[in-house]
Structures are given as structure tokens and as C-alpha cells.
Computed example of a mutant assay.
Amino acid sequence: MSELLGHNDCMKSLRKDLVDIQGAIMDVVSRTGPISYTSWKFPNKLASDLDLVDLLEEYDFVDGEDAYNQHSHVVLLELVVDRYYTKL
């Protein structure tokens, strides 16, 4: 499995998952109103204050940058956990 860490297709799939999860969260929040939960990944911020667009831009696949891609892959996984954990 470690050979998939930082793989472009895996990261694309994670990015799509994050967008889908965020869309579901926004749908629920639009019906219930905002709920204040601290982010799991960034505990000094509210989960609702994370700018997912900026984070997806920052942690994107870069051709030829294996170490950076592996780091970005882990961050994307952590963001999936963050989105599920914070229960916006």
C-alpha cells in the first residue's frame, strides 16, 4: 500500500471525497444552522472556519515532487478525518 502514498489518482479521489463530504456538511448546516466544533486537524480553529478551497490548493499533486506529494496525501487523509470528526 505504501507505493500508493502520494499517487496522483489516489489524491484525486481523496480530493473528490473531501468536496463531497463538505457538500453534505453544508447541506446539513443550511438546514440546522451553524454548530461550533473545533477542527480535529487544526485545533486552534473552528471546523466551520477552515477554507477547504485554500487547503485543496495548498495540498495538491505536484509532478516530480514525491516527498511533497506523500505529505499532501497524508494531509488530505487527515482532512477527511477532520470533516467526519468535527460533525459540523
Score class of each variant (00 low, 15 high):
T38V: 15
D20P: 02
Y59F: 07
H73M: 12
K16N: 08
E58V: 08
K12I: 04
A24E: 07
S13W: 07
L55H: 01
Q22S: 07
K41Q: 07
K16V: 10
E57I: 15
D54K: 14
M11Q: 02
D51V: 05
V81I: 10
L50P: 04
E78H: 13
V53K: 10
Y85D: 06
H71D: 12
C10G: 14
S48E: 04
D82E: 02
V62S: 01
L76R: 01
S2P: 12
D49C: 13
E58I: 03
A47H: 03
H71I: 09
I25Q: 10
D49K: 14
S72H: 05
T32M: 11
L52I: 04
S30V: 04
T38P: 11
K12E: 01
A67E: 11
Y68I: 11
V80L: 14
D51W: 00
F61Q: 00
M26D: 08
H7I: 06
S13C: 13
T38G: 14
L18H: 00
K41G: 07
A67W: 05
D66T: 10
Q22E: 09
K87D: 10
S72G: 03
A67L: 11
A67F: 09
D66H: 06
Y85E: 06
L52G: 04
E58G: 01
V62M: 08
L14R: 09
V80I: 15
S30A: 09
L14D: 01
D20A: 13
V62Q: 01
Q70L: 00
D27A: 13
R83F: 04
D51P: 04
S72Q: 00
D63I: 09
Q70G: 00
D9I: 11
L5D: 01
A67P: 05
Y85A: 13
W40D: 15
L4G: 05
T38S: 15
M1S: 14
H73N: 05
V75I: 09
